Simulated assay, not measured.
Amino acid sequence: MPPSSRRITLKDLAARLGISTATVSNAFNRPDQLSPALRERILREAKAMGYSGPDAKARSLRTGRSRIIAVVLAESLTYSLNDAVASELLSGIAEVLDAHSHTLLLVSGRHHANRIPDSASIADGFIVYGLMPNLKMLADLPPQRPLVAVDFDIESCPTVHVDNEPASYAIACHALSSLPQRPAVINLRLTEQPCNGRITAEHRLLSAEYTITRHRLIGFQRAFKEQGIDPAQVPMWNVEENTFEVCVPVIEEILDLPKDQRPDLLMCMSDRIALTALTLAEQRGLRIPEDLSITGFDGIAEGQYRAPRLTTVRQDNVAKGRLAASMILGKEPMAPHRLETELIMGQTCPRPA
């Protein structure tokens, strides 16, 4: 046994087992190259000797690769892990990284306003995800490392999107086929300045270059025009964060309008917004869909397991994560990808009789 006064090395473990250092390295970094029995033997002896595995920084300096992929999130880690859409995407990313013996590092853009944290400096590549990630942080990413953007556009970078505009157009055409008298739209973070409430003429909307929700609004507005509805006459509200707590005051303002001003169709940019509207409408005794029709976007499980079942657009977030991870590892072409969605006909906005 090597002396306990110094750190156990990979060479020490290899000598102890009578095998090559490459074989020991494979047990930690490329387990698919070894039989399960041999890998188990190596890991068992490593534990007994107090060897925890190759040092990531040393390996990075030696090989130029850390086998770490960093995901830069627009939101806080707490929000991202609790949000159904974000957590499904991260699950897809982790699945691919696990299969290829890479480590996932999560970085929040909310808490590092000026630069990428030191912990991410050795990452082999970056996946940027979310609505309007921190642009200062993006500028600090190592330019020589591969980068994939998900639900966000970065100039000259490969992207993964769903068909936001045509999907929104399709669900809007369906919702408008019942000829609502007072349609309205609830957007998700679509104003240049923070606004958690009614959008007025003084508010400037972000362009489609900065947020996917503008693409969704474009789809809605195309359907309005085809139905002879002036988009400028359709009232819009904005929600700053896709959480129940932030949605509540906005939706309460809408539902508490006088009956002749209250919308009879709410077209929501996310399922979380739609489900919050559904809950608050039921608390007020409104009948769904007789008094109020509601549509969402995302297709999260919560909206499909409750009654009435939410009418929405389903996007495969796990598939988005798998694709982004495969691209960053060089398993898929580094090119723009757009995944198709599925219109789910629920009970909150059924087909017209």
Rank of each mutant, 00 (worst) to 15 (best):
S52F: 06
S52N: 06
G53D: 01
P54M: 11
P54L: 11
P54V: 10
D55E: 12
D55Q: 08
D55A: 08
D55V: 02
D55P: 00
D55Y: 04
A56K: 09
A56I: 13
A56P: 00
A56S: 13
A56F: 04
K57F: 13
K57T: 10
K57W: 07
K57R: 11
A58H: 05
A58P: 00
A58G: 09
R59G: 02
S60D: 05
S60Y: 15
S60F: 15
S60C: 14
L61S: 05
R62W: 00
R62S: 05
R62M: 07
T63I: 12
G64C: 04
G64W: 11
R65S: 13
R65T: 13
R65W: 11
R65A: 12
S66K: 09
S66Y: 14
S66G: 07
S66V: 12
R67T: 08
R67Y: 14
R67I: 05
R67H: 15
I68Q: 15
I68V: 15
I68T: 15
I68K: 07
I69M: 09
I69E: 05
A70N: 03
A70Y: 07
A70M: 04
A70F: 06
A70D: 06
V71R: 00
V71F: 03
V72Y: 02
V72P: 00
V72A: 01
V72I: 15
V72C: 03
L73D: 01
E75K: 13
E75N: 13
E75G: 01
E75V: 06
E75R: 10
S76E: 11
S76M: 03
S76Q: 03
S76K: 01
L77E: 14
L77M: 10
L77A: 07
T78V: 11
Y79K: 03
Y79L: 06
Y79M: 07
S80A: 15
S80V: 04
S80D: 08
L81F: 15
L81S: 07
L81H: 06
N82R: 07
D83C: 06
D83R: 02
V85L: 13
V85E: 11
V85P: 02
V85D: 07
V85S: 13
V85H: 11
